[in-house]
């Protein structure tokens, strides 16, 4: 239903953003800027990803779908779609960061754990933004409304993620900082459950 060009465009956007960061900081970036830039690029890519309207946001398509699919399943499908897309984009962003900005901040298997953090954040963002996108589309507000509603709501996710990333870069043992990942997983579950309950109210006329 969504075309390939959209996803390719997002990939290009993400790589261009990482390249801009590389131009700004140069090779061997400080770990603080490495950490900050990685999350900011992921965040902007995620917002870009959800900014495109779905075909079924139009009301005639929606009323057709209402008779054929359970709205809850429809939300889960959207979350799944965004999750897969953001997992892929997260991996791409991380690879681009390693390529351009170097692996200096990481010691041992730190890079692997940082990657885990990126993927966990991608899942949490997908579960929240799927709902926000549907809400904004239904309100007819477009991208600016997604930003106004979404940005404050995702701040807890980003706060936890940046702290986790910094812990990993400082060389703190994974076991001592894993509770951040657990928290992200709880958020993902919570947002999905909340969306699952509330999506029908959003969807029907």
């Amino acid at each position: 239903m969504r075309n390939k060009h959209g996803i390719a465009g997002l990939a290009v956007f993400a790589i261009a953003a990482v390249y801009t960061c590389y131009q700004a900081t140069g090779m061997h970036a400080e770990r603080e800027s490495w950490n900050a830039l990685a999350w900011v690029v992921l965040l902007f890519t995620a917002f870009n990803a959800v900014s495109k309207p779905w075909a079924d946001d139009a009301s005639n398509m929606r009323s057709f779908l209402l008779h054929t699919v359970k709205p809850q399943d429809w939300l889960l499908a959207r979350i799944l779609y965004y999750s897969l897309m953001l997992l892929g984009l997260g991996a791409l962003i991380f690879a681009a960061f390693l390529l351009f900005l170097g692996m200096d901040p990481f010691t041992g298997s730190g890079a692997l754990f940082f990657f885990l953090g990126i993927e966990a954040t991608a899942l949490a963002l997908a579960s929240l933004l799927a709902m926000i996108q549907a809400l904004a589309a239904r309100a007819g507000g477009g991208f600016s409304l997604i930003a106004v509603l979404g940005l404050p709501l995702i701040i807890p996710i980003i706060l936890v993620s940046t702290r986790y990333g910094m812990d990993i870069m400082k060389g703190i043992a994974f076991g001592d900082t894993a509770h951040h990942l657990l928290f992200l997983a709880t958020l993902t579950g919570g947002f999905t459950a909340l969306g699952y309950i509330l999506f029908p109210y959003l969807w029907r006329d």
Binding site: G140, G141, V148, L149, Y201, L202
Partner: peptide, 23 residues
């Protein structure tokens, strides 16, 4: 802001309630 965006009052009640639960 969300409330100010939506014109239809029934839709506004529903959508802003959903957002409020998230908030």
């Amino acid at each position: 802001v969300l409330r100010a965006t939506i014109q239809n009052i029934r839709l506004r009640a529903r959508l802003s309630s959903v957002y409020n639960l998230f908030a």
